[in-house]
Amino acid sequence: MSWRYGRWTVEHTLPVGAATRVAAGESVRSGDILAGGGTVRRVHLVEGARRVGVAPEDLARVLRVRPVADVRRGSILARTGRRFARASTSPIDGRLVHVTVDGDLCITPVVDEWRVRSAIDGTVTRSDDVAVAVEGEAWALQGLAGYGPDAIGELALAVDAPTDQLAPGRLDVRLRDRILVGGARMAAEAVTRAHACGVAGIVAGAAPAGGLRVMYGDDVGASGAPSFADVPTILCLVGFGSAPLPAEVWDPLVALSGERAAIHAASARLFVLAAADRVAPPAAVPAIALAEDHASVRPVEDVRGPNALVLDAER
């Protein structure tokens, strides 16, 4: 839980069924589309190799369409022969997504599309069916746990002090597409209202664990829940329940408000795309301590005791 300006690699995991991807080596900006595809559910299995009379390993030679590509009903997928041609055709309008070991072709109807956007400015260093990674420079704040899809927007303060709780009354549609900075606590009421108002994401010291269950389901855990679903995006920086932000964390958040920012849920990081000299190098974060009843977390001066934790630069 400390601010650092540096070079980061952000890996964006993709859902299955990616149809388009940016190539490795390309430059992207935060918010650019890295990959897109359709949600895959049922597939139609179409005889391929057997239909056209080739061995499964030779099917690639006679394929007319390669995964992943859109096909129309009746489109020829594979074909052999000239005078006595044998062909495999698509039974539906859809998308060829996969070829099985036995040389059959999986075609799925295109029902809805998804897109994955870059969290930071940088260069694509990996691009395959599973993930697209982008490497670039940014300010980053390591949090404790991220929930929901990645969020991209302008950083804005939604509380007056690091000890304040995010109030639903301060949230409206004018904050659409912003990443809001809450204080010590973001209750589920405030988070769901913010989501309804189109707020991109919220960063705060802590979120109530019971509220997380309401928003993300009963199996949500303490280590975060990255998702592609249409749910709120939040980043807990310090703990759960209530956790006032140390000045060393809060002051740069104030200074950087108005800058482009992104929450990367999988790594639980807030990226702020500002120049390295935009804020002074932050001081080391003080120790934080778990409350005696474990229901909250707070910064402390006195680092003695079993439940006080001195944070290093990595945390």
């Binding site: 404790l144 746990a145 109530p208 664990a209 019971g210 997380l212 269950r213 855990g221 303490a222 280590s223 703990g239 759960f240 329940g241 778990l290 005696e292 009843d293 474990h294 229901a295 909250s296 977390v297 005791g305 079993p306 439940n307 934790l309």
Partner: peptide, 17 residues
């Protein structure tokens, strides 16, 4: 649940109450 979640993210916490 708050106690459980904080406990899960706190290495080697010791119960004190």
């Amino acid at each position: 649940l708050e106690r459980v979640f904080n406990r899960a993210r706190w290495p080697d916490a010791v119960p004190t109450d």
